[in-house]
């Protein structure tokens, strides 16, 4: 597989990489909630290659499956902005309703499902026509959104109702509601779609839900010596392709919990920067990056050794993070 230097033009412009560099680098994008910017990092050099002004209070961030479009929820502008990853220029806006925070793309890249906290709705937006396809009434303060690997089920967590709502992606109807602990923030499917992990920030737990029965089969709790339990606030979740290892960002506990995906036991706590919110894998999953809100940096985790190897200064209050996909057959 030939990897291409991603968004080459930008890096050339920035003069960060010498011509002829053989680096097969990916690009890391980090939303800086306080700075109204996205920091662009090179995964090889771990240098900042660009900083983009993206609008007020950027948080949720994702990429189209081909890596060509970057989606950023700018919460205080009440829109989702779409950027061209080649030029780092804004292409257009997507209607989101007020205060968009988190969203997820269908595996095919269309549509985009956006949690709309103010109106207790999940907004379904066609990213090509840029039209709202549907508005789905859910619980109070919808937050996390996850689309199943087969694209057939959309999960939305509602923070005040404390549920994971299972939505049929065809009919937009809710077919199951699973009660979890207080203030569910993030939902993440395993790659095979059989399990759904939901973090409860205030409850301090992660619920493991069997997606067939829509039942909680296990509740993961955390216990870190010498830390008050209130400081353990699970937010972001990432799972390895085989489902064997689950990483959970614990917010003010300043740690990432590493969980066995079979026994659901916590294997290790990795001390990262302050208040990790969200995480992203490098393709191949050898490296995991965390966006640390209170220390303004990104921690780099070696996934095999379970070691934090580096931290990189980004903008103020980094929140969301995404890494460009494997560059496939393009030459």
């Amino acid at each position: 597989m030939v990897k291409r230097l991603f968004s080459f033009s930008v890096m050339a412009t920035c003069g960060m990489l010498a011509a002829g560099s053989a680096a097969v680098a990916n690009v890391i994008y980090v939303t800086n909630e306080k700075d109204n910017t996205v920091t662009v990092l090179d995964s090889e050099s771990l240098e900042v290659t660009a900083t983009i002004d993206v609008g007020q209070r950027p948080r949720g961030i994702t990429l189209s499956p081909d890596g060509k479009e970057l989606y950023v929820a700018t919460s205080d502008d009440d829109v989702v902005r779409v950027f061209d990853t080649q030029t780092l220029k804004q292409k257009h806006l997507l209607p989101s309703g007020p205060d968009p925070e988190l969203f997820d793309l269908a595996p095919s890249g269309n549509p985009l499902y956006i949690a709309n906290e103010d109106d207790n709705l999940v907004t379904v937006v066609d990213v090509d026509s840029q039209q709202v396809l549907a508005e789905i009434p859910v619980g109070v303060e919808p937050e996390g959104v996850a689309v199943s690997p087969d694209g057939k089920v959309v999960i939305n967590t509602s923070e005040t109702t404390n549920m994971a709502h299972f939505i049929n992606a065809q009919t937009y109807e809710i077919f199951a509601n699973v009660l979890v602990d207080q203030r569910p923030r993030w939902a993440e499917f395993t790659d095979d779609g059989t399990l759904l992990y939901v973090s409860s920030e205030i409850g301090g737990t992660v619920s493991v839900i069997d997606t067939n029965s829509a039942k909680v089969i296990h509740k993961i709790t955390f216990d870190i010596p010498n830390l008050p339990p209130e400081s353990i606030q699970p937010v972001g979740i990432k799972i390895t392709h085989d489902g064997g290892t689950v990483f959970v960002a614990l917010g003010p506990a300043n740690r990432i919990a590493v969980i066995d995906g079979k026994t659901f036991e916590v294997r290790k706590y990795l001390l990262v920067g302050q208040r990790p919110w969200h995480m992203a894998f490098l393709p191949g999953q050898k490296i995991l990056y965390t966006a640390n809100g209170n220390s303004n940096d990104v921690s780099v985790i070696d996934v095999d050794r379970l070691k934090v190897t580096k931290s990189i200064q980004v903008g103020r209050q980094p929140w969301g993070i995404v890494v460009s996909p494997e560059q496939g057959e393009e030459k």
Binding site: N120, G139, V140, T160, T161, N162, M163, H165, I174, N177, L179
Partner: peptide, 10 residues
């Protein structure tokens, strides 16, 4: 109103 939103699911 918040409670009714939750209650309708249960």
């Amino acid at each position: 109103s918040d409670n009714l939103t939750t209650g309708r699911f249960l």
